[in-house]
């Protein structure tokens, strides 16, 4: 017996297809239609204006001409190889860390990661720099992948390697410092010649690192039962949070030398790090305090019931409340 199936028709375009999507998301009522048209008009005009400007009047050649200035400032050109070693070192370490931490993942290089690396390599290869530099940049990217693979292999063989990662990063910070500053056989480069992205990264990494212990200390000081410690912490945090960063930087640049004994003149980069550290420590202290306060009171009471350092004049430093508090505050500190 022959049964004839009625030919299955495609779903109506107006309910599922692109037309329906457009109708639902862009033209659902008169207000949305008006809004879409208005926004489209503004967007179109801006895009056209930007495109005509960028193809006719803009002078893009200033960017490749000043590329070294953007990245390293007035760092002597003969010492650029040190910058490349730093980039290579950080790339290799990042790859190793990735590989070791993800040693148990089913697939190390997923499709999306490879696509991103491909895009990055394409950008590096098409960038307006000298040919050897482009090859070097692609090599760095390949180096990240290669060291990730090595890290995965090594991590599988000796899982204890994971504990050494933070030590390796700390060591690399010292090596990077040595490479930038010079000395010990390398020609020294004064801080007046630092600049560009290198200086930005250096300042932020250094002040983030230093502000962490200081911020935690301030947060604990604010919770302390000792009135002097508490009041000094509160005063510091509130004053720093109450004035603009530019004022703090001014204090670091102009006032710090006045407060130091004669003859001690820290250089400008150090003064900037001092200013940035004091500033971010005050903000971090408030995040940590929020984290500490989010731990229920019962935890403190439970810990003293267990006999864990319940001394009333001591702050919560040794009690279980701080691991819990830090867990919730370090997520906040990321912002």
């Amino acid at each position: 017996m022959i049964t004839t199936h009625p030919p299955s028709s495609r779903p109506p375009l107006a309910q599922l297809g692109a037309v329906a999507w457009v109708r639902k998301n862009l033209f659902s009522n008169w207000f949305n239609t008006l809004l879409t048209l208005l926004l489209g008009l503004i967007l179109g005009r801006t895009l056209i204006g930007f495109l005509t400007w960028s193809t006719t009047t803009a002078k893009w050649q200033v960017i490749p001409a000043n590329l070294p200035l953007f990245f390293v400032g007035r760092y002597p050109a003969a010492e650029y190889w040190r910058m490349w070693i730093i980039v290579g070192l950080i790339a290799a370490l990042a790859g190793l860390t990735w590989g070791i931490l993800a040693r148990n993942a089913v697939q190390l290089f997923s499709q999306s990661i490879l696509i991103w690396f491909g895009v990055a390599a394409a950008i590096a290869f098409l960038s307006p720099t000298a040919i050897p530099l482009r090859i070097l940049m692609v090599c760095v990217l390949v180096g990240v992948l290669a060291s990730a693979w090595v890290g995965r292999m090594a991590g599988r063989r000796t899982p204890a390697l994971g504990q050494w990662l933070s030590f390796a990063w700390a060591l690399s910070f010292i090596v990077v410092w040595w490479l930038i500053v010079g000395g010990l056989g390398l020609p020294e480069v004064g801080t007046t010649n630092w600049g560009g992205l290198m200086l930005t990264l250096f300042l932020s990494v250094a002040s983030i690192l230093i502000c962490f212990p200081l911020g935690v200390l301030l947060a604990l000081g604010r919770q302390s039962n000792l009135p002097v410690v508490r009041w000094i912490s509160i005063a510091f945090i509130e004053v720093v949070r109450g004035v603009p960063l530019i004022v703090i930087l001014f204090i670091g640049a102009v006032m710090v030398p006045l407060f130091l004994p004669e003859g001690v003149r820290p250089n400008l980069v150090l003064r900037a790090i001092i200013g940035l550290t004091l500033f971010s420590a005050a903000y971090l202290a408030e995040n940590v305090r929020g984290g500490l306060q989010s731990v229920p009171r019962g935890q403190m009471e439970a810990s003293s019931a267990l006999g864990l350092n319940p001394a009333p004049h001591d702050n919560s430093g040794g009690s279980p409340s701080s691991p819990q508090g830090f867990y919730s505050s370090d997520r906040r500190a990321v912002y």
């Binding site: 509130e238 004053v239 949070r241 004035v243 603009p244 004022v247 001014f250 006032m255 006045l258």
Partner: peptide, 30 residues
């Protein structure tokens, strides 16, 4: 702040000026 910087350049009164500025910003925020 711009006024303070000009004043500081002319008179060199960094400490007094920064105290004044910090106090004003603190008051504003308060």
């Amino acid at each position: 702040y711009a006024t303070f910087i000009t004043t500081q350049n002319q008179t060199g009164r960094a400490v007094e000026g920064i105290l004044l500025i910090a106090l004003i910003y603190l008051l504003l925020n308060l």
